[in-house]
Design a protein around this nucleic acid. Structure first.
Lengths: 154, 154
DNA sequence: CAGAATGTTCAGAGATTTCTGAAGACTCAG
DNA sequence: CTGAGTCTTCAGAAATCTCTGAACATTCTG
């Protein structure tokens, strides 16, 4: 069981490299490794030794990016939370907004640099690359979804 | 021309969201927008109002991830630097190491959680997703390379 | 509607990251 | 080999990000 806690902490570290802040990463990791289907905020605070404020902030962040969901809690007044189906595809889609930002930055750069400059040529390569990725990444995620449902049914 | 500087700063901001630190992002942006083919470290320090140490560190970071290259400088003892061809594909590949880390974290988690637990089921979905992406992302970059050279030749 | 339990917000403490600048290492011409 | 010019390193300053915890808001029960 110490192994489990260790694996959870390592997972949190990896998640924080995806751009999540530490508390948020630890909460997400805890939800991943939870033995129950859903967990309450106070439970998370106790397991992770975090303040109620931190947990609240982390849950809010995870909710807004669509990684977790509130679960109607029968028999308890407290809110329960759990990982959403397809959370990882959501996380990847978030990455895609960064790709879009890169594309737009390149585009604006070209406008500012003017035609026939070295800068414009460099920026054009950049724009084309990110344009390609912005188109293809969602397609890739769709392929995954298709493969997953096929496997679940087959 | 103020437009150009503004676009460069916006670009730097976007790049820093890709995980680069601020000084590194600004140096990369300056190399993108440079009017000359290559630039020296002191030039970068002056244009960006950065210390020599910061520029040195930024160049080192960019060199090690393969985004820029040293250019043999004819007639000058100073080192010149410029963006590498295919830099963006390199940056994307760097992302892929994060994907790999996610896959590995999930795999370790499954080992620690034991079969037939809720956690193991969640972790399996995660592992499968990242395994898929880890395979497919390089393929996508290859497709881009192919398309690019085709366009350059056609 | 009152009271109690739970959830959220935010100013400030604390931790972490990042930058600076001076000291030292390296390189090359003479 | 010497010295000028250039580059790198690193300890500490500065800036930034993150967490805490208590005050406030909300929601539910009786």
């Amino acid at each position: 069981m110490a192994d489990l806690a260790h694996a959870a902490e390592r997972m949190a570290l990896t998640l924080s490299q995806n751009g999540l802040q530490k508390a948020t990463a630890r909460v997400l990791s805890a939800l991943l490794f939870a033995e129950d289907d859903s967990v309450t905020a106070p439970e998370l605070a106790e397991r992770l030794t975090l303040s109620s404020g931190s947990v609240s902030g982390a849950l809010k962040a995870l909710l807004t990016v669509g990684l977790i969901e509130r679960v109607p809690a029968p028999g308890s007044r407290r809110e329960h939370y759990r990982l959403r189906e397809g959370a990882w595809a959501v996380l990847m889609s978030t990455q895609n907004t960064v790709v879009q930002a890169m594309f737009e930055a390149a585009d604006e750069g070209i406008a500012a640099a003017g035609r026939d400059t070295l800068a414009a040529r460099r920026l054009a390569e950049m724009r084309d690359f990110y344009s390609f990725m912005f188109r293809e990444l969602p397609t890739l995620v769709d392929r995954w979804q298709a493969e997953r449902t096929r496997r679940a049914q087959g």
